[in-house]
Structures are given as structure tokens and as C-alpha cells.
Amino acid sequence: MTLSDLGVGSTVPLRQLGRLMLEWRNRSGLSQARAAELLEMGATSLARLEKAEITRVRTGVIKEACGIYGVPEDIAEGMVRLAQQAKVKNWWHSYRDLMPKHLDVYVGLEAAAAGCVTYQPELIPGLLQTEEYDRALLCARWPNEPAEERDRRTQIKQHRQVAITRKNRPLDVDVVIGEAALRRPVGGPMVMARQLRHLADTSTRDNVSIRVLPLRAGFPGGVSMLPFVILDFGTPPPGAPTEPLVVYLEGMVGSMYLEDQDDVRIYYSAHETLRQAALDEAASRNLLRRIAREYAP
């Protein structure tokens, strides 16, 4: 099964291809400037290819680079396949006019992930938001946006959520949500009631774990943690390149992707600390249903 069979699109193949291009250029002993000269391309263009900062890759360039770098035939064939997979257009490409670049990258990674570990202290995680909860947030953020554009924004979230319910390799989700997210009203009492019931119902799925961090837990680990997501891409098929775990930190004007193993380990440890301080899954489900009744009996 290929990445394109899974509906991954360009993000992951480009990242894998970029890492391989950089690795084999370094093995060849060529500087970036000299390699770009041999490939008859700008050094900036080669740098962007190695960093996966481009949207289109010419397979001819990859074949030529493999020859110059001395890449073994079987690996070269795999690199060409990655370049071909990077051309596949998937659902989120039709929404690029609405998504900032960092979210475009994230959606592609999320679609390829096998597991998602996340902490959200004040907001319901996007993968678990109901449509009306999402719409309420969108109305507050873009109050003057035309209705048809807002409809398209809600479709982005709905497409992403299919990852949890899809029959083929559903996404494993392990979530810790701060109690503040349940108490902070979005869209009114009925919207919140339905949102919390949706969380409770979704938490019964085998591939979903939802735990609530109660306010009384204070600050586990002695720090105030900002939201984060850890994406795990599972074990690749034999011969396929490995995609390293990624920590995603979203910001208002940009986002960070951490791949260093030490950084990933720190966030996994932080999530485990939060998870241990949170209510267990059954108690969390009961709390969700109780607070839902408080909003709308």
C-alpha cells in the first residue's frame, strides 16, 4: 500500500524525499551549491527541495540527482515514486485559499498519521469538534466572512475527522482535555451540551481515548503546558522510508514542527504526566455527560 493509496497527498512524500535528497548529497560529498550547478538549478531551489518547501517536483530532476549522487537503483526507484506521489492532489488542496501554509502542512501529516497524542487545555480538539461548535468559533474569528466561505471552512474540519472513523487504518487518538475547555462556553448552552455528549460518545470507540484534566489537578509537573500534538506514523512497510514522529505546536502567526528525538521524548513525558493526573476514561465520560446536563438538562 502506497502513501497515495492512503490519501496522504504531497506533505509526507515531499518530506521523505527531501530527507533522502539531503542524505545522499551529503554522502556524495557535494556541497549544495555544486550539486545545484550539476543539476542546472538554483541552489535556493535545491535547498527548498531538501527542506520539503516546494509543491511540485520534477521526476527528471530526481533521476538525475540519483545518478550524480550515486544512489543505488532500488533506492533511486523509491525516490522517484515519492516524487510521483507528491503530485497527487487530495481533498485539502481545494481549500488552500483558506488555510495558512502551516495548516496545509499539518493536515497532510495528520492524514498520514497512525496515531495522534494531544493536549488541549482550553479548547475542544479539532478532530473532536461538532460542526456547530466549529461554526461558532469560525463566526467569532471571521465575523464578516461570507456564509459560503464559512461553509467551506467547516468542511475542512469534517474532512479531517474522517480519519477517526475510516475503515482503513483509523487514527488512534489519545487526548487529554483540560476541564476549562468544558466550562468555557462556545455557541451557547445547547451547542456545548451536544459537543460534550459527542465527546462522551466518541470516547467509547476502540481507537479513541479521552481523559479530562480536572481543575483541581492544578499544574501537573509544575508547569503550565500550552496545547500540543504528537503525530506517530507507525511502522512503514519493508523498504519504505520511515517518517519520524512530529510534535506540532500551533501559533497565531505560525507553527513549529519538532522532530528531534529528545524534544519528542519531552512532550511524550509531559503528556504522560498530564494523563496520569487526569481522570480515567470512565470517570471522564461521566463528567462529560454530567456537565452536558448542566448546560441543557
Score class of each variant (00 low, 15 high):
residue 118 T to C: 14
residue 118 T to A: 15
residue 116 C to E: 09
residue 172 D to G: 09
residue 165 T to D: 00
residue 115 G to P: 05
residue 156 I to W: 04
residue 178 G to I: 05
residue 154 T to Q: 09
residue 89 K to P: 04
residue 149 E to Y: 11
residue 113 A to K: 13
residue 178 G to K: 11
residue 122 E to V: 10
residue 106 Y to C: 06
residue 180 A to P: 02
residue 94 S to E: 14
residue 174 D to N: 05
residue 180 A to E: 05
residue 124 I to E: 06
residue 86 A to H: 03
residue 152 R to K: 08
residue 96 R to K: 05
residue 112 A to L: 11
residue 110 E to Y: 12
residue 113 A to F: 12
residue 164 I to H: 04
residue 177 I to Y: 03
residue 129 Q to V: 11
residue 86 A to P: 05
residue 97 D to E: 14
residue 164 I to C: 01
residue 109 L to K: 05
residue 130 T to C: 13
residue 109 L to H: 06
residue 162 V to D: 04
residue 117 V to Q: 10
residue 85 Q to S: 06
residue 126 G to N: 14
residue 111 A to G: 07
residue 169 R to T: 08
residue 96 R to F: 03
residue 149 E to N: 14
residue 103 L to W: 08
residue 145 E to S: 00
residue 98 L to D: 02
residue 140 A to Y: 00
residue 132 E to R: 10
residue 139 C to E: 15
residue 79 M to Q: 14
residue 91 W to H: 13
residue 168 N to P: 01
residue 92 W to Q: 10
residue 113 A to R: 12
residue 180 A to Q: 12
residue 135 R to Q: 15
residue 116 C to M: 13
residue 144 N to C: 01
residue 180 A to C: 02
residue 83 A to C: 02
residue 95 Y to Q: 11
residue 98 L to C: 04
residue 141 R to P: 01
residue 172 D to S: 12
residue 181 A to T: 10
residue 111 A to C: 13
residue 82 L to R: 06
residue 185 P to C: 03
residue 175 V to H: 02
residue 121 P to R: 11
residue 134 D to A: 15
residue 80 V to G: 01
residue 102 H to E: 13
residue 84 Q to T: 08
residue 112 A to H: 07
residue 81 R to F: 00
residue 88 V to L: 04
residue 131 E to P: 05
residue 165 T to H: 00
residue 145 E to K: 00
residue 84 Q to F: 02
residue 126 G to P: 14
residue 149 E to V: 13
residue 167 K to T: 10
residue 174 D to C: 01
residue 147 A to R: 10
residue 131 E to Y: 10
residue 184 R to S: 07
residue 112 A to V: 10
residue 184 R to Q: 05
residue 87 K to Q: 14
residue 164 I to G: 04
